[in-house]
Design a protein around this nucleic acid. Structure first.
Length: 896
DNA sequence: GGTTCCTGGAACCCTTAAACT
DNA sequence: ACAGTTTAAGGGTTCCAGGAA
């Protein structure tokens, strides 16, 4: 383990640091980066130095990279010193020297983080000098912890695991493994032998591969054209049965499994990696194992014999050359701390990308003026770029910040988020890809925040705070690579829809910032889906009376003569209770337009609006995403005055919340904080609902909600008793649950289950600066530093980080230690069994549950409990089906 | 004319579902 | 009814080709 440090001092430092009770990863980051300058002799210095560290801020206007001494890399390639480099680094250096790097090409983050010295040179060095005025710390070498790397554990890729590949040879130092291959830049990787477009000049690359870049692909006629079965790849069955464990099929010891075991340790670990991983940037798991895995395996940035350390560039423009000095930097920490670019706010002070933010406040509104096209084929790393996301009209998406009166430009952040009904979070399988070139008019910076690539472009008052997003493409990461990440429970299969997420941080008085975020409409990124799946882009009405009968026009794509429109209703736990086919007017309908007659609702006597879904289906499996539709009660009231039962109450609230886009019980409490309450299914905490894919108001909720600026909290937040090991702190209150988010969502996976009652409001307090404690009972965080950035997000209970699957361990989640525990399971109740057995429409089936008063409404002991992972809706459907099978013995999917 | 980027199409082959024994 | 096997379909990934800048 120590080999990669290459320096005993580093080892000692690592061990010391691993013992330091760093509650705050920011603190640790500062310690690490700045502490080296002060000697970092002992823990005392470590602890005390933090007060001396105040990260400088970059300021506007957007600074060209050249100002930091960044030069076209071509000139610097020749300066690459290959001495002491690993085989791969030499290859890479050679590659750079010979071919340079196209200036116009957006370099992959993997390239930027590659250990090649070229990547750690002037761009960041100069910047770092500018910022920190630090001095190098020669002799210290630390494995690069690339925050993005764990997104793309290339070495674990099935393609790379072809039998012919030898990169995993035991003879190779893991840190010299060519698996660090910058595979998302085919020109720079010596493994891609396919397209002439992507591999101009075959011989150099071939020779590179033969020269030791053993990451080349299979020698098959189409080398690497197809991934082999991924090592340890999870299957659907494994999702259905968490007890199933992927088994390595080859390559013993498995770099994956073995690694995970090896690095399952936490702070107590004596290895620096492990301890550093503990300071990971707020990933979703209590153990930031994503970093653990890839840093040491897939992205061995430092060879054994490295004695220098490098500064990692995170901006592709920072073409660099090996500087005379080097820096001791934890790459993982760098972007967390302060990322060059437009935004001058320390990243650590910003809300994590997983956190939901409102799109508007009283004063401002972040608005997507022009939405992207519903289809955009993402490109793989092995492909060339497929260009920027476009607008349906042929232009590009446009985003505007309204209400801003300042004179300073702001940085608009863009990343790729999920598009399903659950929490909006960075998409695990897609990354934003920076597009450059003549046709791109928008300046953009690229940074990596917690493993998510983020583009930052200026919003300038002179442009009315409007930006044309013509610089953002979408990169697809291979499913196998992502799914193998420890802690990653999302599946990539059929998970091909994304949203562009735009986020902005507006400076406020007192050094605070107001963060707003808005997401685009979903974008389908799959080539196949784009051609085959029907997609509803617009509906001319959102609801009608329970009687139906009205004509509704659906506008979209891939409609066919065989298209059917199915209305359906599900309970909050995903049980489908009603399904009915609408009548399609085939005479009027076209490939892009369907004329349908809305079917009547199952229950014409409802007294509250009923939220249902419909979808277009072209045949087996080819169905659109569910669309929302609301049946409204008849105007003649036949309202019973009996108190609604619990289920109906929750249902009402849920429906209303969906209609209104806000939780019905949201209100401003005395502290001026919107305190949403879910009004969700009794017995299910919001996170469970989210896990179920039960459509919470989701982004609509966010977009209609209000951003609240809040005075800096006192220390009470951080001194609150800790109930969760994983980042959520509960402050017991008899009347409300106050959730102090002490970490990025990734570190607080157990937010769910802390809601003592949905009768009580919740106060969700996000404290990004408290991230880092609460791992294994670490003491509370120190008071928030300067640059406190506080967002009180309403509706967060519906967007619980737990729901993100950030810590969706296959093992049953531990119930939070709250007086009233809610196990993180889905509780299937036997009475739900009766469902429609014939999907062939028209069919109208109701589950008994719908309005029966005899049924238990809340938790019932002895029921079957199933843990739901954060899967896509289709898969949740499958799981629910299995549950139903288990409970009823009824077989066959689509029985509803 | 060469290079690079972008785009559409399709091949390849693994996974999954369905059919069959 | 269940389990195992086979086959077909679906889908992810890669490659190819051509046009535009």
């Amino acid at each position: 383990m120590s080999s990669f440090y290459g320096d005993k001092a580093a080892i000692g430092l690592a061990e010391e640091l691993s013992q330091v009770n760093c509650q705050d990863e920011l603190e640790f980051a500062y310690l690490f980066e700045y502490g080296t300058n002060t000697g970092l002799q002992d823990e005392q210095s470590i602890s005390s130095d933090k007060d001396l560290i105040s990260p400088p801020s970059l300021s506007y206007p957007l600074v060209e990279a050249s100002q930091y001494g960044i030069k076209p890399c071509a000139s610097s390639y020749a300066e690459v010193n290959t001495e002491g480099l690993s085989g791969y680094e030499q290859l890479e250096a050679k590659n750079y020297q010979e071919y340079g790097r196209p200036n116009s090409q957006a370099l992959s983050p993997r390239i930027e983080i590659t250990p090649s010295r070229e990547h750690y040179s002037h761009g960041r060095d100069s910047l770092q000098n500018h910022l920190v005025n630090t001095s190098p710390s020669p002799g210290l070498t630390v494995p690069g912890l690339d925050p993005l790397a764990y997104r793309e554990p290339q070495c674990l890729s099935p393609a790379s695991s072809n039998s012919s590949t030898s990169w995993h040879s035991e003879n190779l130092s893991p840190w010299a493994s060519p698996c660090v291959s910058p595979s998302n830049s085919p020109r720079l990787q010596g493994v891609h032998t396919g397209s002439p477009r992507t591999s101009p000049g075959t011989s150099p690359q071939t020779s590179l591969a033969e020269d030791g870049c053993v990451g080349r692909r299979s020698p098959s006629p189409r080398p690497g054209s197809r991934s082999t079965s991924p090592l340890c790849k999870r299957t659907y069955e494994m999702y259905r049965n968490p007890n199933l464990v992927p088994v390595a099929r080859s390559r013993s010891p498995s770099p994956h499994g073995g690694h995970e075991e090896q690095h399952a340790g936490h702070y107590g670990s004596n290895n620096l990696s492990g301890s550093m991983n503990g300071f990971g940037v707020g990933q979703a798991t209590s153990v930031p194992t994503k970093i653990v895995k890839t840093n040491q395996q897939a992205y061995p940035l430092y060879p054994d014999n490295h004695t220098e350390s490098y500064l990692v560039s995170c901006d592709q423009d920072m073409k660099n050359k090996p500087g005379p000095e080097s820096f001791f930097v934890i790459p993982q920490i760098w972007p967390k701390q302060l990322v060059p670019g437009i935004c001058s706010i320390p990243v650590a002070s910003l809300p994590p990308l997983e956190w939901p933010l409102p799109s508007r406040s009283d004063q401002y509104e972040l608005h997507v003026e022009v939405q992207p096209k519903p289809h955009h084929r993402a490109h793989y790393e092995t492909e060339g770029s497929r260009g920027a996301v476009k607008a349906p009209t042929g232009g590009h998406p446009v985003v505007q910040l309204r209400g801003y009166r300042g004179k300073e430009p702001l940085g608009l952040q863009i990343f790729i988020g999920t598009a399903d009904e659950r929490i909006l979070k960075p998409h695990a399988f897609y990354q934003v890809h920076r597009i450059t070139g003549k046709t791109v008019t928008t300046t953009s910076y690229e940074k990596i925040i917690n493993g998510t690539k983020v583009l930052e472009i200026p919003l300038e008052p002179k442009n009315n705070m409007k930006a044309i997003i013509d610089c953002a493409g979408i990169l697809k990461l291979r499913n196998a690579d992502i799914e193998l990440r420890k802690g990653e429970t999302d599946i990539g299969r059929k998970n091909t829809r994304v949203r562009l997420v735009f986020r902005i941080h507006i400076p406020q008085q007192g050094g605070q910032h107001m963060s707003l975020q808005v997401a685009s409409h979903p974008v389908e990124c799959s080539q196949r889906s784009a051609h085959e799946l029907p997609m509803v882009e617009k509906q001319d009405m959102d609801g009608c009376s329970v009687l139906g009968g009205q004509q509704m026009i659906l506008t979209g794509q891939n409609f066919s003569a065989d298209s059917k429109v199915i209305f359906m209703e599900k309970t909050h736990d995903g049980q489908q209770i009603w399904e009915l086919e609408a009548t399609v007017d085939k005479d009027k309908s076209q490939a892009s337009m369907l004329f349908i007659e809305v079917p009547p609702y199952r229950d014409p006597s409802i007294c509250h609006p009923a939220k249902v879904n419909f979808y277009v289906i072209n045949g087996k499996r080819k169905r659109s995403q569910p669309q929302h539709f609301t049946y409204t009660p008849l105007p003649v009231p036949s309202i019973k005055t009996e108190p609604v039962d619990e289920y109906e109450s929750g249902r009402m609230g849920y429906s209303m919340s969906q209609m209104l886009g806000v939780s019905p019980q949201s209100y401003y409490n005395t502290r001026g904080v919107i305190t949403p309450d879910s009004g969700l299914v009794p017995g299910l905490v919001p996170c469970q609902q989210a896990r179920l894919g039960v459509s919470p108001p989701d982004h609509r909720f966010q977009q209609q909600s209000q951003a609240i600026l809040y005075p800096r909290p006192g220390k009470s937040m951080s001194s609150s008793p800790i109930y969760s090991q994983t980042g959520a702190t509960m402050m017991p209150d008899s009347h409300r649950s106050v959730l102090v988010h002490t970490g990025s969502p990734g570190q607080s996976p157990h937010l769910g289950g802390q809601h003592p009652s949905n009768q009580h409001p919740s106060i969700i307090q996000f404290s990004p600066t408290n991230h880092h404690l609460l791992r294994g009972g670490d003491p509370p965080a120190p008071p928030p530093p300067e640059h406190q950035h506080i967002i009180y997000c309403e509706g967060y209970n519906q967007h619980s980080p737990q729901a993100t699957g950030a810590n969706r361990s296959p093992v049953p989640a531990q119930a939070p230690q709250h007086p009233q525990n809610y196990p993180t399971v889905i509780q299937q109740q036997p009475f739900l069994q009766r469902v429609a057995k014939d999907r062939s429409p028209p069919v109208q089936v109701e589950a008994q549950r719908c309005s029966s008063a005899e049924e238990p409404r809340t938790s019932v002991p002895g029921r079957v409990t199933v843990k739901q992972e954060n899967l896509d809706q289709a898969y949740l459907d499958d799981v629910n089906e299995i549950i139903r099978k288990d409970l009823t013995g009824v077989h066959g999917r689509g029985q509803t």
